[in-house]
Design a protein around this nucleic acid. Structure first.
Lengths: 198, 198, 198, 198
DNA sequence: GATGAATGAGAATTCATTCAT
DNA sequence: GATGAATGAATTCTCATTCAT
């Protein structure tokens, strides 16, 4: 009251929307979407539930907005990939960039991996599926052997899952990521070679 | 069968517990654990909610009982694996048998994959984690390169995820499974060769 | 199974009804009537809920039967008191015998004291009230001063409540009872003297 | 009152919390705590059950809040008593004031007397016990004869119980209270005289 | 940009009770 | 003398959502 202003209350100005997204994503990733209530989100932000409704029309919209904001890099990547020749180099680069994008938005993707059942019912389920199919179409040659198609998918899964596993074996996330990346690139490469006869 | 009467109501006798498990697993896999209410399960069985509570003490107990019953083959497999030499042949056989076990209890494992966030909070989360670590300890050589360790984990993930993907590319589940299996075995084999110098 | 018989199962023969009453009273006194479920009673007896219904028609009937069985001495006491002259000696004797009767059926009376709200709604509420009025009519002279009437009621309450209090001050229940008895007799005596001018 | 509108719906504003407490206490006292459901309370207030949960987190919290609000005078009394000399006059005054305090919050204390079993399990059980022990410590001389200690406790019980009894004998609550008070003061006085040799 | 008060729908769970065997 | 299986009605409680202020 009076004074020059600073500190908690003031910093809040205008970025409540984003703070909601951050806190919500944190809780969604930690506990799951259904187990996270709006009350909990509001409490952690020290606002009322009604305040959330000023910024978002529904609970689902909070999630959708997070997804839209955080998945843009992946969208861009796919866009980029589409315009490249489907060469081995491109594929390898896609894998590398995809891995980087996953890391950037790690909580979101952890959430998506652990809440597939929920997501399937929600609108982002379709959005995500569409994106993944876009990726797949770049990586997978439609003429390829079924086994090689599986390899491509496996590469993708390896990236997705690799982030959260093996934490006891290797604690340095950088090294872990590198190893995961190597396996993924390897799988893609094998798949490509068989088909292209390269 | 035979005798004075049969039909729906009579056949029910004594197998309600199992019917609950079946229906519940179906719904859990389809909609997720939290989105499936006991009302829904009861309605589908044409009994009252209270009847469910005669057979199980909580909603969670229904899930736990399903898990315990259906995951026994995997437990047996791990037990078997532990007593074998950690040779390449053993590892390959483990992968093959594991794949078969996953298929046997496909709905359960689909459920587990799609509801990880839920499961993590529940008691079966720990049970499952323990089992997976048991499997990993058989497949992974502790001296192996980190990359090869990732390959082993990747093989496991490929099996898990492979069942539910690529349905548009190859509609025959048998062929799909074979392809998935080949990729997994391949990954395991690569990992083993590097380490064993075979 | 065959043999001479002994031990738990055999001893049960024919006295299940009574065992139900005992266990039920124990739980009713400990936790209250409403918080004690038939499931709990059955579990403690290692029989099924349905077995309780072989012996009693309702939950309330269990309580009623306990009350009827255990409050008979008090009924007898009142009967006896009615036929005596309403002299001081009689009143003192009534108090003494009543105190003894309360001790005999301590759990029942503890239960009744701590569950008055419940009992009021149940049929034993009326039974009990009738009995207490009977007692009162013997102890209280209708011509007596209001204050002396209160003294008589107070004597009764002192007996009822005195059993469960002062446990920290005096751990010997015998001494406690004696002290309580002395106060009660004293109150009755005062009340009688004033009225009778004795 | 003044302004454009009034009447039932408007008057409600802002005092719902208190109205819940009033209605709840009424029902708790009439029927007992367990037999009173939140549905009943809500219906009587013409709000939904959920509205109760906006104001109180649990059913128990409703009771606790009532207890805290209504038992403050007693707390104050004990505080006051602690600072006085433990003379006969103080003790008599305590009894008088305690009696007045009981009348002020009669429904609460009737409830507490008739639902002891319930209260024992709830958190207010301990709060109440602590208060009563505080009172006792003022009234009872630790060197006193056991019988005199009983007299003090008996005085307290007489006050508590006296309010609800003898309604058929004397219908004027004022006179009843006076008579009860006299007996209680008498008991305290006797106890004090013996010990102090006054 | 947010709050206070409330709702309607629904969740899991518990209970006394019933009845064919 | 007792059980196994089930029911119907109720209970406490939680949630996403709304809206006047």
């Amino acid at each position: 009251m009076g004074g020059t202003m600073d500190g908690t209350k003031q910093r809040r100005r205008g970025n409540t929307r984003q703070r909601i997204q951050e806190v919500a994503l944190g809780l969604f990733a930690e506990q799951g979407y259904e187990k996270t209530s709006l009350r909990e989100i509001a409490e952690r932000l020290d606002v009322t539930k009604a305040a959330l409704y000023y910024h978002f029309r529904t609970k689902e919209e909070i999630l959708v907005s997070i997804f839209e904001d955080l998945s843009r890099p992946i969208e861009d990547l796919i866009e980029w990939g589409r315009r490249q020749p489907h060469s081995l180099e491109t594929k390898q680069e896609i894998i590398r960039r995809y891995s980087a994008a996953l890391m950037e938005a790690a909580p979101l993707f952890r959430f998506m991996q652990e809440n597939q059942a929920t997501i399937r019912e929600l609108s982002i389920g379709d959005m995500f599926k569409t994106k993944m199919l876009g990726l797949r179409d770049i990586l997978i040659d439609p003429d390829a052997d079924l086994v090689d198609q599986v390899r491509c998918v496996s590469a993708l899964f390896t990236l997705h899952a690799g982030m959260h596993v093996l934490q006891e074996v290797e604690s340095d996330p950088g090294k872990r990521r590198e190893a995961v990346l190597e396996v993924a690139v390897d799988l893609i490469t094998q798949a490509h070679r068989h088909t292209a006869g390269d």
